[in-house]
Amino acid sequence: MALTNFKLMKQIFLILSTILACAFSAEAKLNVVATLPDFGAVAREIGGDKVNVTVMAKPTEDSHFVDARPSFVVQLRTADVLIDGGAELEMGWLPPLLQNARNPKIEVGKPGRVQASQGIRLMGVPTTLTRAAGDVHALGNPHFMIDPIIAKAVAQHIAQAFSAVDSTNAATYDANYKKFEATINSKLQQWGTTLLPFKGQPVAAYHESWVYFAHRFGFNIDIFLEPKPGIPPSPSHLVEVIEKMKAAHVKAVLVEPYHNRKIAEKVAASTGAKVVDVAQFPGALPGTDSYVALIDALVSRIAAAMK
């Protein structure tokens, strides 16, 4: 009797240890949560097969308004690293999630927390804070990842965080970062050359989310279909926009997946401009799963429209 009990216990012990082993091998990968798909894409480049990346916001949705769904709490609870923008883009949904996640590893200031805007000089910081100006971001325009030079800095930041949390793979992260940096550097030459002929030309956009891209490649994006950030286009404002676009001979209107494309089409039709489907996030346009693929697509689409 005692013997059978012993056997049984041995079996249970074996099963338990297998489960534990499985659990530990699963944990061998760094659990990374990114609020937005652009951070996620870069995290995958840096982490390679050493990390598991989960992204909260969908690439096609308005990143200002993501539901704080409870399943995100589960992701955050088990995260080793959290990458967020840190520039108030996610302020409508991330704070209650973090409150509920209770994960000290990803608190601000811990190595497991990457706030991507850290070290980035944000553009468009409002001098006065008034909501009469629409959906302004107190810390500046948070759509910065679309500038490849900034993306490199964020990538390095991510690599540093990964190395700090998972020092055994630090060399891999560093190598992956160097690779990413080299790719961006060489790609920048290509993108720069492609967009060179259109330097200084005006481009219209639905929402004010392209300042960093414009700055990098020398466009002039200051006509917006939204009268104020986040405020839907009104007919009277569109009349103004159309006049401005005609006067400036604008050839392209940038529209993101969640914007009302019909409005952009109307504006385009009455100005002779082309609607260009663009996106801030990898995965929102077909074949743009990586960051470089996204910028490739943006550059070629915009160049095609400007010709």
Binding site: G85, L94, V108, G119, I120, L139, L188
Partner: peptide, 30 residues
């Protein structure tokens, strides 16, 4: 860069490690 296109831009990136430019020191996104 091979082609000569500058790959850095100190006008956009400030020193990352020591600053939390975004939320201000000590502020928390929680």
């Amino acid at each position: 860069a091979p082609g000569g296109f500058p790959t850095t831009d100190t006008s956009v990136v400030t020193s990352a490690p020591e600053t939390i430019s975004s939320t201000g020191v000590g502020a928390s996104l929680t």
